[in-house]
Design a binder for these strands. Sequence first.
DNA 1: CGGACGCTTGATCTTCTTCAATGCAAGTGG
DNA 2: CCACTTGCATTGAAGAAGATCAAGCGTCCG
Lengths: 229, 229
Amino acid sequence: MSNLQARSATRSRAGGHSPTTRPHWSGGPKPDSDLPEKPLHFGQDMEIYAQGSAAEDFFEVVTGMVRTCKVLRNGRRQIDAFHTQGEVFGVEAISEHSFSAEAVSDCTVISYRRHGRNGVSFGDAQMSEQMFGFAMRRVARAQDHALLLGCLSAIEKVANFLTEWAEHSPGGTDITLAMARGDIADYLGLTIETVSRTLSHLERESIIAISSPRQIRLTNPKALQVLHS
Amino acid sequence: MSNLQARSATRSRAGGHSPTTRPHWSGGPKPDSDLPEKPLHFGQDMEIYAQGSAAEDFFEVVTGMVRTCKVLRNGRRQIDAFHTQGEVFGVEAISEHSFSAEAVSDCTVISYRRHGRNGVSFGDAQMSEQMFGFAMRRVARAQDHALLLGCLSAIEKVANFLTEWAEHSPGGTDITLAMARGDIADYLGLTIETVSRTLSHLERESIIAISSPRQIRLTNPKALQVLHS
DNA sequence: CGGACGCTTGATCTTCTTCAATGCAAGTGG
DNA sequence: CCACTTGCATTGAAGAAGATCAAGCGTCCG
């Protein structure tokens, strides 16, 4: 009855490693299927799917981090979101992916075969509500992002970004960034230099401590909160 | 079986006028209900619901235009979207409205009683797919908006804005703007002055003609398309 | 008529970008 | 093991885009 099938991504060069854990759909409901799914591995910066490619599958992150982004003709890039463990990405309203997806770090994802007019099934009312909730959460996320891009200054954007990731960290103060400065810049609508300068500025103000480019500690979280808008 | 009920908005001061047409849900599927709905009238700049207020209802535009927006502590405002005839707004993932809604022009809306955990019903699979499609279209809209805010220059933003509204106009070249410069500015993440200057610039370049502040004709649509990214 | 309001325009200032150089750590090959 | 390369991050100086501050202008409406 279900036509969901796990499948290999054509661009994958890695493979064969078994995941040690099963996904638990923390980012939303498991869209569908009780069929076996095949884990896929992607090396850093590998493309999982291209913008404009057929949206035959959608994915769930098992380990590592994935970014979904769009590149304009002029070369400017906007990162829509970073996806971590348990989050689903690649669900589309139409038959083509409107963004590309790439591995920020080495990562493992599971692909699910899309089916139905909207690419998911609606077997029962509860599932339907879950799918709707999943979509609405994505709306809220995109709207928050638009607010950040439209209203905040560079320092406010960076403060927001740090606070957001601190919440994802155990303890809430020590952040290990999976992404490079360029990714942060393209997520926040800034340049690499501005991101770097802003981080240096926050460190000089003793609001954060940067032990290495990817290791940041919030030494004064309150001061960051003040910058939240 | 349906528990959807039309009701008066507490903030409405106008009322009693009968709408001349029935909504046709061009912006998405009709979420639910075959019950009678009561049309509500709002004068220009009136608040339909406040940010943070209980999301007991959602709405559909019958005539006029509605904006959904958020105001930050520092006074900066971000307009999320402008809603026109047939579009639904105020559907939320949570129990509170994350944006406020205001009448851009005098307008008529219909309110629907929210119900169910996600505020809508999922009576059958077809309805569920429609609701999901509705939500996914909102995702795409918010993502496009984020792209505009994050990647485009002032002139590109304005060009995008004009092109978008030209598509909503019969003929596709003569635009009657329902919103003021301040609304455009807050939608595009610019200031009033920059919007005004950019429009003047486009007029000097003979790309548009401004017969009055609200009446704009695209005299060279191709030139606008070039600016699209 | 006169005031209010929205829009436009000009002058100046700030913020962020761009361009350029340097530093730093990891990987490579002799 | 050490020079050399390479890629990312940081920092500085200069420039540009847009914001801010400040008038003016036209229109609508009391």
